[in-house]
Design a protein around this nucleic acid. Structure first.
Lengths: 248, 248
DNA sequence: AGGTATTGTATCACAATGATACAATATTCA
DNA sequence: TGAATATTGTATCATTGTGATACAATACCT
C-alpha cells in the first residue's frame, strides 16, 4: 500500500476509534550519559512531536498505549504508566492535525474527525535504547532520539507533556528509589557500574549526587546484585559490575 | 421545568459534550472523626455511585470538574485534583447508564450517546462538610455523605475509583505532609486542636500514630499557627488551638 | 482539694544522611 | 619496571530525623 492510500485509509477510520480521546507516549531511553526521548517529525512540518495515537473502541487505554509503543518501537511487554491527562481547551491539536495532513496535500472538511478537539492521556515508558530501531510511518519524516535537556521546542503542549513525565519520574525516583530501580532496568545495559547508575540518576534528577553516599544508598536498597570485576581498559581501579535482581 | 422534561432535554444534548469522555468526582469531607465521601443514589436503582458528568466542548476538563463540583455542592474555588483515568474496556458504564435511564421509564435506542463507552477522568476534592447542602438532581433520589470505611459497595468501578483517590491522598500525606496540610484545611474547622488534626491523619492513613511524635512533626512543618487556649468543658488540660497559616 | 484524663515537652536510643578521609588498584607513562 | 594517576570501595564522624518512653502541667469533675 502506498503512503498516500495508507493515509487515505486512516482518514476514513473514524469509526475505529473512541472520539475526542487521544494518547501521547513519552518514550525514554538512555545513551551516552544522556536521557533521550523518542520524537517524530511530520513530513513538511518543521517542529517535533511525541508519538501518539487513538484508542480503539474495543481496547482499554492501557492496551492502546502498549499498541502505540509497539507500533513505534517494535517493543512489547514494556512497563508503561499513565501520568496525566491533558485536557485544556486551548490545546489546539485540531490546528496541529490540520497542518500535518494538509502538508501532505490533502484538504479536510471542517468537521473531519481528525481535526476535532482531543483530550490526551499521557503515558511514559522506559525502554532499552539499543533495542529500538526507529522507523517513521506514512505521516512522518523521521523518528529519532533526542536529548531531553537540549531538545528543540516541541509542537503544541508536547514540551509540557515531556516535562510532566520527567516530573513523575523524579517523584518516583525520590520517593520510591527501589521501585524505580526495577523499572529503570531497560535504561541500562544488562550489567553496569555504580557510576553508570549514578549518571542515570543525576540526569533524571538534574543534580549532582555524592558518589559515596549514592553507593551506600543503592546497596542498602537490596535491588542490586554484584557480578564481577570490570577489567576493560580504563586507567583506574576496576569497578564492580552490577545487575538488577529479578523481581522479589 | 419538570424532572421529566429536564431529563428529556439532557438526553438530547449529545452535541454539548465531548464524546466518550466523562469524569467522576470523589468529594471528601470530614465529620464525627470519620472521613466521608459524597455519593448519590439514582431513582429506582439500588446501589450508590459517584457524582460525575461530562465535558463541554468549550471547557477544559479541569473546568468541567469544577462545574460538576459546583452543581453538586454549590461550592466554588475548591482545590480539585485529577488523579487517574479509568479506561478499561470492561467498565460497562453503558449498561449502568442504560439502567438508570430505563429506571425512569425511558427507552433508549441502542446507539444513544448516553449509553456508549466512556473513559472517565477521576478528580478528588477536599471540602468543608458543613458548607455542603446536598440536594439530589432529576436523575437521583438522594445525595449524601457516607463514611469511607463502611460505605456499601458502589456501582461499576466506583469503589475502585474511591480507593485510588484515597491512595493518592495517602501518598500526598506521606510524601508531602506540608502540602497536604494546606489542601486539607477545608476538612477541619477554622481552628482545631492537635488531636483533631491527628484524628484526620489517622483516618486517612487508617493507622494509629504516636501522639507526641505527631505533634513534633506537625509543628516542625511550619504550616500551623497557634491561636489560643481552648477552654470548653472537657475534664482535662485545655489544648492549644491551631489554624493553618495563610499560603506562603 | 484531690483525682482524672489529657496535653505539652523533654529525652533517649537508633536509623538515615551529608560530608570527609583514605586505602586499594588497573592502567599509563616516564 | 615502577611510580604516577584517576577512580573506586569502604570507613567514619557529625547532624538530623524518628520511634518510644517519661513526666510535669492543667482544666474540670466530684
Amino acid at each position: 500500500m502506498t503512503p498516500y492510500t495508507q493515509l487515505e485509509t486512516f482518514l476514513n477510520q473514524e469509526n475505529e476509534w473512541l472520539p475526542s480521546l487521544s494518547l501521547d507516549c513519552v518514550i525514554f531511553g538512555f545513551h551516552d550519559h544522556e536521557l533521550k526521548v523518542l520524537l517524530l517529525k511530520y513530513r513538511n512540518v518543521d517542529a517535533l512531536a511525541l508519538p501518539g495515537g487513538f484508542v480503539h473502541k474495543e481496547e482499554s487505554i492501557d492496551e492502546a498505549a502498549g499498541r502505540v509503543l509497539r507500533e513505534r518501537t517494535g517493543l512489547t511487554d514494556i512497563y508503561l504508566e499513565q501520568f496525566y491527562v491533558f485536557g485544556q481547551k486551548e490545546r489546539q491539536n485540531h490546528l496541529f492535525n490540520k497542518t500535518i495532513i494538509e502538508a501532505q496535500g490533502f484538504q479536510l472538511p471542517a468537521d473531519h474527525w481528525f481535526i476535532r478537539r482531543y483530550v490526551s492521556v499521557g503515558y511514559y515508558a522506559l525502554v532499552d535504547f539499543l533495542d529500538v530501531i526507529p522507523s517513521p510511518d506514512y505521516l512522518s519524516d523521521s523518528i529519532d532520539w533526542y536529548d531531553v535537556q537540549t531538545m528543540p521546542p516541541l509542537l503544541l503542549d508536547h514540551g509540557q507533556i515531556v516535562r510532566k513525565a520527567l516530573d513523575t519520574l523524579r517523584t518516583l525516583l525520590e520517593h520510591n528509589p527501589a521501585g524505580f530501580g526495577r523499572r529503570a532496568a531497560p535504561l541500562l545495559p544488562d550489567t553496569f557500574t555504580m557510576a553508570d547508575l549514578q549518571r542515570l540518576y543525576e540526569t533524571i534528577l538534574d543534580q549532582k549526587l555524592l558518589r559515596t553516599n549514592f553507593q551506600r544508598k543503592m546497596l542498602s536498597l537490596k535491588v542490586l546484585e554484584r557480578v564481577d570485576k570490570k577489567r576493560t581498559g580504563k586507567a583506574h581501579k576496576a569497578p564492580y559490575l552490577y545487575r538488577f535482581k529479578p523481581w522479589q
